[in-house]
Design a protein around this nucleic acid. Structure first.
Lengths: 259, 259
DNA sequence: TAGAATGGCTACCGGTGAGTATGATCCACC
DNA sequence: GGTGGATCATACTCACCGGTAGCCATTCTA
């Protein structure tokens, strides 16, 4: 009997099987002859669930909906996953795996910590804007059994600690302005996580581009940089040159239509 | 005792905290004589709903739960609100009203736009951390009828536009570094909204204090301010003592005490 | 070609929870 | 002390949905 494992026992996230089939098409629809690859189908179930959750929310999505999207029936869905909760969990894992990969990659870069942080945040944004973003970001404790909830919490904490560590390293190597790593990590993660609340795939920017824009905001800060008077935080009237907003460096990522 | 609650008998009745604020006490419990003030009771229903949604989520909260928290029965709840959806809507409005008030107040201040923005953000954070924060931030379109959803969207858009306007004004009066107002507003609102996902009342910081810390992050930016010896009063060296003092003293949520 | 897997469907169960019909009780006021 | 409206409880209805039992169809294997 299939997979009753509630624990994380496998690296099932971005299954290589995913590449084998067009992710937007039900593998069942493909032909009369049945595809035998269980992994492909299971993956399709999880993707369909993610899309449905993303569109209608977890509680407003019935397993019949998911089955209908795949043009099969509910028991067929249950043939691949053990219950609805596990579906949500799998979507979460699939989403967060991209972020964990980002940290692994960043660890190999030989650049200042701020650049490593930026690399992580770019992929973070992309993951949040992906079809798994909703599940990753909005899966609620109350919808999951205690041990799955604990798993998710642990993974989220891992991400948080990773950001804090990069911040500390950046402060140390002087590529990042001294700040409170905890609160800064909260602010960064919050801004990026929130993308999942408003982003739709029809948007003109990709997740990575949004992350890029956010990074620009966080890097420069709101306070004008050209003025040295940080003793008096309020501005004065333009006193001289040097602060002409001729080339706003943050406005470059205005790409349009790139899906 | 008609307690038909199948769930674990949660000790949610804050009996020890009852002395702190009478908003946590059911007006029905007060005495045998009935309070005739319909507004007070209706308000209590909405507060109880907000707390329940906050703790267990909208879909995991039944109207029986809310009624039980007030020590009444479900039809009594229906005597004050017409349905569950309206309950969520009212909670949302109660929460967002604090933010709208912040904009109104800020409009009267005679300071640079960045300071006005900070004033708004402080109250924004406090509202998100209030008991209505969950409803305000996480009320989903899919859980609401189209016209209520439209109402909420309009209010959210109003807030967003207000932030953008302050940013534009700040850029104009040179109190804010030139940036893309739209993306900056998204980043700011996202970071603050996200508070509702992790904040619990037991936290050592109030919503306003968290907002203050976030403002510091956004103001200084991550990049070192190398002009001067990058000393900024709002950020500290990462020596020891990572946890902020946090001052449990709290000016707690004063949102929606309309009567 | 028998028989075993494998994959899928029809038809159902049981629980839950939103919302309600009905009537009892309390209070203010006459 | 009776009346009417406000308030609240008992006890339902009803629809939806997660999950399952059991049977049918196809393919693989020997």
């Amino acid at each position: 009997m299939p997979t009753n494992r509630p624990k994380a026992g496998s690296p099932q996230a971005p299954s290589p099987a995913a590449a084998r089939a067009d992710s937007t098409v039900s593998p069942w629809r493909a032909s009369r002859e049945r595809l035998r690859d269980r992994e492909v189908k299971r993956d399709a179930v999880i993707r369909a669930a993610a899309r449905a959750f993303n569109r209608k929310g977890y509680h407003n999505t019935s397993l019949d909906d998911i089955a209908a999207a795949l043009e099969v029936t509910k028991p067929t869905v249950y043939y691949y996953v053990s219950n609805k909760e596990q579906l949500l969990f799998e979507c979460f894992v699939a989403g967060i795996e991209g972020i964990r990969a980002a940290f692994r990659e960043a660890r190999t870069l030989e650049v200042p910590a701020r650049e490593r942080l930026k690399a992580v945040l770019r992929q973070y944004g992309a993951a949040v804007a992906s079809e798994f973003g909703w599940c990753m970001v909005r899966a609620e404790d109350q919808d999951l059994s205690p041990d799955m909830s604990a798993h998710i919490k642990a993974m989220k904490s891992e991400i948080d600690q990773g950001i804090r560590r990069l911040l500390r390293e950046g402060i140390q190597d002087r590529s990042i302005h001294p700040c409170d790593p905890k609160m800064t990590a909260f602010a960064l993660a919050g801004a990026l996580n929130w993308i999942a609340h408003w982003y739709r795939e029809s948007q003109s920017m990709t997740g990575g581009e949004i992350a890029e824009a956010f990074i620009a905001v966080f890097e420069s800060g709101l306070k004008p940089r050209s003025e040295v008077s940080n003793e008096d935080p309020t501005c004065r009237k333009p006193k001289s040159s040097s602060s002409r907003p001729g080339a706003p460096r943050s406005a470059r990522s205005r790409v349009s239509s790139r899906r």
